[in-house]
């Protein structure tokens, strides 16, 4: 098992990680979900978090945008301390986008309206400018022509790409993906993964919780394996998949590959 570096104070330099977790603990009642997680993500990097179900991956990702408050430790996103009782949630959330397994589009709004809603309501931006950006985003996620469709009229993969566009409309610096392909069938899975891959190539910082080993191997810069709320092993994908050091990593990979 790799030794996790002790907490250090990171000076705000251009090279500083965009997301940085130090000794993050979280429990739900007697269930200790996170038991001291530390990791750093550099700007423009894509990391994948893999691990068995119930190992705390989803909780971990939800902590980063303060959807789940942590018990102790520190989470910094571009110098914003997330575990601060006086946290300005809006300033955090406009920097961090998140996409969920169940898409969670607003069913009473069209695809385009879904994308436009937050910038207009939350950021009070100009409607015409937001609409132009929303249309461009629909094109970017390869859904041009589906602007006026309601979520119920779109396939799972299409809905998920609208959800990605909706998050991007807030112009975040970091994107979180929480098992976004887990509810999709194999064909539609691909189109969503390609969309994320495009984003990563464009330099978006992505934190991806996934069961797609192929994606982790090809797209990510770094792979983390979590188990029982701890990081078991982390390494660049080439090393992680071809030469795992920890016995638990080998065990996990033998099950999923």
């Amino acid at each position: 098992m790799n030794v996790i570096p002790p907490p250090t104070i990171i000076p705000p330099t251009p090279d500083a990680p965009i997301v940085s977790l130090r000794a993050v603990f979280k429990s739900f009642g007697a269930n200790n979900v996170l038991q001291g997680i530390s990791l750093d993500v550099a700007k423009g990097e894509t990391i994948c978090i893999i691990g068995p179900s119930g190992s705390g991956k989803s909780t971990l990702i939800r902590c980063i945008n303060a959807l789940v408050p942590i018990d102790s430790g520190s989470i910094q996103v571009q110098g914003i301390e997330v575990n601060d009782p006086h946290l300005d949630k809006l300033s955090l959330r406009r920097r961090v986008g998140i996409v969920f397994q169940q898409y969670n589009l607003f069913p009473h709004k069209t695809a385009l309206e879904n994308i436009m809603m937050a910038p207009i309501t939350v950021l009070k931006q100009e409607k015409a400018e937001v609409e132009a950006r929303a249309r461009a985003l629909m094109k970017k996620v390869r859904l041009a022509g589906k602007e006026d469709f309601y979520p119920g009229e779109l396939s799972g993969g299409q809905q998920q790409r609208v959800a990605i566009a909706r998050s991007l409309a807030m112009r975040p610096d970091v994107m979180l993906f929480d098992e976004v392909t887990a509810a999709l069938d194999p064909e539609t899975k691909k189109e969503v993964l390609v969309t994320i891959q495009d984003l990563a190539k464009d330099g978006m910082t992505c934190i991806v919780v996934t069961h797609e080993m192929g994606f982790a191997r090809e797209v990510s810069n770094h792979v983390y394996l979590t188990e029982h709320g701890l990081i078991v092993e982390h390494a660049p994908p080439a090393e992680f998949f071809s030469n795992p050091k920890d016995a638990r990593t080998r065990e996990f990979l033998s099950q999923v590959l």
Partner: peptide, 15 residues
Amino acid sequence: VPSGQWESAESLGFT
């Protein structure tokens, strides 16, 4: 209303 609706609205910065 499914909790995911609250969750996604909250993470988009809606009050």
